[in-house]
């Protein structure tokens, strides 16, 4: 006679084994598809090269019609026509519209204003172009003869210089043309506050390091002397911007 108790125990053990085996199989079955769910990765690469150049811009605008920086009235080669002038300070004719009708003031040998051109100390007349300091803005320079704009990339130092030469009639010299910063005090008359152009370089501005950006406005003045020989005279003015 079989021991039912033992048989039951054996049957229970068998069932446990089957259960364990079955569980193991189920785990295996789940592990199989799980292995196919693993992430896969692919990469591609781009090498992008850009060659960045430096920039150095120096442009100017004179007394001709059109004085808007944004409208590209500024160029690297400007012409200012100051028209017909004389030692008596007669109002200008035949020049750029912005300078016509400008009168000259009688001055002595050191640049002081005189009340009359008939004064024995009078050496001639000084024409001031746009002497008023009226804060020209970035786009217009109605109160300065010339606008100077410079822009550039990172620099260690920069310097702006100017030099001039004159060609024309006898006795007219380069230093009879003068300039001053528009922001300087407005002179009453005479040329004591002006700087004479020179054939050698004259420093206007230096700076750095950093990005280069400035906008300058200069007024011009022209001294016409009784000793000047009549005729056309041309000043060639060169602004040079150098960086390191």
């Amino acid at each position: 006679m079989r021991d039912l108790t033992n048989t039951t125990k054996e049957g229970g053990g068998m069932a446990k084994k089957n259960l364990v085996f079955c569980s193991a199989l189920v785990l295996c079955l789940f592990s199989v598809p799980a292995s196919f769910d693993a992430q896969e990765t692919k990469s591609s690469a781009v090498t992008l090269q850009a060659d960045i150049n430096d920039v150095l811009v120096l442009i100017i605008d004179g007394t001709d019609v059109g004085e808007n920086l944004y409208s590209e009235d500024y160029t690297t080669n400007e012409t200012c026509i100051l028209g017909t002038v004389d030692a008596l300070g007669t109002p200008i004719t035949g020049g750029d519209p912005a300078v016509n009708n400008q009168e000259g003031d009688p001055v002595d040998a050191v640049g002081n204003e005189l009340t009359s051109p008939y004064d024995s100390k009078c050496i001639g007349s000084f024409y001031q172009f746009f002497k008023v300091n009226d804060k020209p803005d970035a786009t217009q320079h109605p109160t300065s003869a010339i606008g100077i704009y410079a822009r550039g990339t990172n620099v260690l130092t920069y310097s702006l210089v100017v030099q001039a030469a004159v060609s024309g009639t006898a006795n007219v010299t380069v230093d009879q043309l003068k300039w001053k910063e528009d922001g300087a005090a407005t002179p009453t008359a005479g040329y004591a506050d002006y700087t004479a152009f020179d054939t050698t370089q004259h420093s206007i501005r230096t700076g750095g390091p950093g990005t280069l950006e400035f906008h300058l406005f200069h007024d011009y003045g022209l001294l016409v002397e009784f000793t000047d020989t009549a005729g056309p005279n041309i000043w060639s003015i060169t602004y040079t911007l150098a960086t390191t």
Binding site: Q39, T41, S43, V46, Q49, T211
Partner: peptide, 20 residues
Amino acid sequence: VEFGDKPGHYFWNLTYTLTS
């Protein structure tokens, strides 16, 4: 390209990655 950039050669290395 900005005013503050120093001139020179610049290389951007771009990596595109696809993951399933």
